[in-house]
Nucleic acid binder design. Structure first.
Length: 873
RNA sequence: GCGGGCGUGGUGAAAUAGGUAAACACAGCAGACUUAAAAUCUGCCGACUUAGGUCUUGCGGGUUCAAUUCCCGCCGUCCGCACCA
């Protein structure tokens, strides 16, 4: 029979329909098998899927299909992170309703994803903009309010002037909005916050146990939470200040350097600063000056330390004879610690810069190990290293740690104005999460403003608070504010006319608990606790590194908050996390400097010279750097085009081959063609095997021929390797193993060999069966097609993973490299179980060793059985 | 500035626990088949080379019988954080 080419498009749709009609990927909650929850970060419905999605979902699908074959009850759901700004931008630009725009995009992207043949339980699908979903999110919000985990406060917030909304700290990058890129302004607004700081310590300490998370993400989260332990201490003013204050409270991590103090610093936003400024025009000017300077990285780098002498002085807490001047300084932040510091210029660079500028004293109090107390001075660089305390009265001679303790102990026991002068305190950099957004397309915050009762939570039975459909985007700002009737409601407490909150929730709220909702998306309450406890935590979560802080930290907060409000029991939502690399592509530019897309050009290659010409105009195109696929640089490749020309399996296979999954992968046309050649190669191999075997499984022979035994060994070694590679998410290594095996099978399965060797025919049949099963998680359609072509029973997608025959993994003879002085000089083939003495004897008799020794005795012989022999001459 | 990662052929990369560096693939070259092309198959493919070898994992040291792997110091590159007291 003549070989036919594999028609991927036809076969893939056929198998997708088969899987679908048999509902083989539907997951039941009550199932006796052990559970495995694999989840890929759900997509934002921006319009069309891109190659990054293909890579992400191909990886997740390999894990899901593999675990299913290993006997687990696998939950592998899909949904849509569907609220957000782009829908509103589209509404403003194209006069489309955000809802229509979003649901149309979802429909497009769903059908694109379905072309990939992912083993998803589509019955659990939802979008976060579904009323059913945000209804339950509003319930969670009310529960959080009740527990004090959500609250309202007036706060200085990050205001994005382009998007006209507030941003969380995590969403401000280099002083710019993460989405708009606009310079963020500071504004005072009343906002809703989640009390993420309640869990700061737990969020930090549990990172230690997230051992299946990348270290990088763990480090980033630790730094973000930013714990520092120190002392909160009050410094007594020599005279009461204008507002009646008698002391200034500061936070320090370096109480050991207290005798090096030369001034006090107040933030420009400190209450005392504000009080002093009331009738001090000069100070007012200075404060304004401080506010003007931006917060971007570049500006901070060059910003000069400036200060304003308040004329106030404080007593040194350890020596009343010393007084320190109080300055307002631009480098002190109000929202860290107490907004006030004591400054020790010798051991803090900022304090030193400031002291030099204003001519304040610089007294070193930590002496480096090698330095001499008499001659040690600080010039332009503060000393922040280890050392012994000196110039410090009773602390002299102590280590830094000892001095910290001594100071803390002393000040804890002293009282001023009836209160202890100091207490040990742990500070976190982490701030509460501001979630109010002045947008339409988000989950409405279910609160009511009543003139009589104040801010009142809506009653649960009145949920959902639905978004109105009749809105317009004629003007900037939040359309909910302008809606003629939507705001009007009855106060849930007194029943009088009241107004709804018009802020909606940050879309990161939506994605902070979707993983829990998937465990029972049909429930009236946010979760079915039993189902949530059964499925959670997610065993393997896969997504981009860009979510290392925001989404992953918020989700960790949410699982804790939902635990406190009785919706689930786990603390940590994601047991295993994998952050995959991006899909990147070369960029191309025309002669006039415009970006040109890969589809418009043809690349010529010869002798390592690559050049490109435009398909239509014939102009020569410059090949530029490799960049993340983006519309602006036109270096995108549409997954649907690839699926149409090569099939989904080719796209999946290419995404899994070559590059390690955590690294960026370069999409190339040649690589895609190579992947497709492999698809055809497997299909040819299957047809050849089918031609010979004619659908009958040969009987297992008593004795295997040498060829058959070798093939079996190759098969079972590959099987063991692929299995462990997939377990470790080393998809590229699994792919390489499969390539190698296909090469072995192809060279073994030659007709002339098969005809004369029935045991080889049997081995080839086994090899094909196992090969197809190994391919199935990666190229499921091709695997089904081959499986059925070889008349194997049922669907390969529902088959159990094959068993490794461990007898095939051991060799009775092995080849050891022989080294002479650490350089390879020969080989020795010997029984695998040969002991050291046998090996040494054989090595000393080998030709290269005899030659090298030249009759002399070796200085040393190192024998590592099963590995290597090294003879030192 | 602080913290972390990475650096191996023309390219993507591989190398259990320190033990044969370059598996597997892409590209390229040569040949077979073909009227021709595609597809397919076979071979070559780190560098130098006097054909016996010599050298090779960013650079320089160190530990070791043995280093891509461990240690120290540089260089390059990418990422994160950044006036956090």
């Amino acid at each position: 029979m003549a070989n036919e080419r594999y028609n991927a498009r036809e076969a893939e749709i056929r198998w997708q329909q088969t899987w679908d009609s048999q509902k083989i990927f539907k997951t039941e909650n009550d199932d006796p098998r052990p559970k495995y929850y694999v989840l890929e970060m759900f997509p934002y419905p921006s319009g069309r899927i891109h190659m990054g999605h293909v890579r992400n979902y191909a990886m997740g699908d390999v894990v899901a299909r593999f675990k299913r074959a290993k006997g687990f009850n696998v939950l592998h759901p899909m949904g849509w992170d569907a609220f957000g700004m782009p829908a509103e931008n589209a509404a403003m630009q194209n006069k489309v309703h955000p809802k229509d725009w979003t649901y149309e995009n979802i429909a497009t992207m769903r059908s694109q994803l379905q072309l990939m043949g992912l083993s998803l339980d589509w019955d659990r699908e939802f979008a976060t903009c579904d009323v059913d979903y945000y209804h339950r999110q509003q319930k969670l919000f009310l529960d959080f309010v009740e527990k004090g985990l959500a609250y309202r406060k007036n706060a200085k917030v990050n205001w994005d002037p382009v998007d006209q909304t507030v941003l969380a700290n995590e969403q401000v990058i280099d002083g710019k909005g993460w989405r708009s890129g606009a310079e963020v302004e500071q504004r005072e607004l009343t906002q809703w916050f989640f009390k993420i700081t309640d869990f700061a310590e737990d969020l930090l300490s549990e990172i230690d146990h997230l051992d299946r998370w990348p270290d990088k993400v763990r480090t980033m989260q630790r730094n973000w939470i930013g714990k520092s332990e120190g002392l909160q201490a009050r410094f007594e003013l020599t005279e009461a200040a204008i507002n009646g204050d008698t002391d200034i409270e500061i936070f320090t991590t370096r109480p050991d350097t207290l005798f090096g103090a030369s001034f006090m610093g107040l933030s420009a936003d400190h209450p005392l600063t504000k009080a002093l400024a009331k009738d001090n025009a000069e100070l007012q000017v200075f404060i304004e000056e401080c506010h003007k300077s931006g917060t971007s990285a570049a500006e901070l780098e060059t910003a000069e330390k400036i200060g304003f002498d308040t004329g106030l002085t404080v007593k040194h807490p350890l020596d009343e004879t010393i007084t320190l001047p109080v300055y307002v300084a631009n480098f002190i932040l109000m929202d860290y610690g107490t907004g006030a510091i004591f400054a020790c210029p010798a051991h803090d660079q900022r304090d030193l810069d400031f002291a030099r500028k204003y001519g304040l004293t610089v007294t070193p109090v930590v002496l480096p190990k090698e330095a001499d107390a008499q001659s040690f001075t600080i010039e332009k660089e503060a000393y922040t290293g280890e050392g012994t305390i000196f110039n410090s009265q009773f602390l002299n001679g102590m280590s830094i740690e000892e001095a910290k303790n001594a100071v803390a102990q002393k000040l804890e026991s002293v009282t001023i104005n009836g209160k202890p002068q100091a207490s040990r305190k742990t500070q976190y950099r982490l701030r509460d999460w501001g979630i109010s957004r002045q947008r339409y397309w988000g989950c409405p915050i279910p609160m009511v403003h009543c003139d009589e009762c104040g801010v009142v939570p809506e009653k649960s039975e009145n949920l959902p608070i639905q978004l109105p459909d009749d809105i317009n985007f004629d003007k900037p700002g939040n359309p909910l504010d302008r809606h003629p009737t939507w705001r009007q409601c009855a106060c849930p407490k007194c029943g009088k006319d009241a107004l709804r909150e018009t802020d909606t929730m940050d879309t990161f709220v939506d994605s902070s608990w979707y993983y829990a909702r998937f465990t029972a998306p049909w429930e009236d309450s946010p979760t079915d606790k039993k189902a949530a406890d059964e499925w959670l935590p997610v065993d393997q979560y896969i997504g981009g590194i860009e979510h290392a802080i925001l989404h992953l930290l918020y989700s960790r907060f949410f699982s804790r908050a939902m635990r406190e409000t009785g919706h689930l029991s786990v603390k940590e939502p994601f047991k295993g996390l994998f952050t995959q690399g991006m899909v990147v592509h070369e960029t191309y530019k025309g002669e006039d400097g415009r970006w040109v897309s890969p589809a418009e050009i043809t690349i010529k290659e010869s002798d390592n010279q690559r050049s490109a010409i435009h398909n239509e105009t014939g102009e020569s195109i410059a090949i530029g750097s490799i960049e993340k696929m983006s519309k602006s640089k036109k270096n995108t490749v549409d997954p649907t085009d690839i699926i149409e020309s090569f099939g989904a399996d080719t796209a999946r296979w290419f995404m899994l081959s070559d590059s390690p999954p955590e690294r960026d992968v370069i999409w190339t046309e040649a690589g895609a063609e190579g992947a497709h050649r492999f698809v055809q190669r497997v299909w040819r191999l299957t047809q050849d095997a089918q031609d010979f075997l004619q659908g009958s499984t040969p009987d297992k022979p008593e004795q295997l021929s040498k060829d058959a035994l070798e093939l079996r060994k190759a098969v079972h070694k590959a099987l063991a390797a692929v299995e462990s590679n997939i377990e470790q998410l080393g998809f590229n290594r699994a792919v390489a193993q499969i390539y190698q095996l296909v090469n072995s099978v192809a060279s073994a399965a030659k007709p002339q060999k098969l005809e004369s060797d029935p045991s080889l025919a049997w081995a080839v049949d086994e090899a094909m069966e196992i090969l197809i099963q190994m391919l199935a998680p990666m190229m499921p359609h091709l695997a089904e097609e081959c499986w059925s072509h070889l008349s194997k029973d049922g669907l390969v997608s529902t088959k159990n993973w094959p068993q490794v025959d461990s007898k095939m993994l051991v060799e009775d003879e092995i080849t050891l490299p022989i080294q002479i002085n650490g350089k390879k000089r020969g080989e020795l083939t010997i029984a695998a179980d040969a002991d050291k003495a046998d090996i040494e004897k054989a090595v000393l008799e080998s030709e290269p060793v005899i030659k090298a020794l030249d009759g002399k005795a070796p200085r040393k012989v190192i024998v590592v059985p099963k590995r290597i022999v090294n003879v030192v001459v």
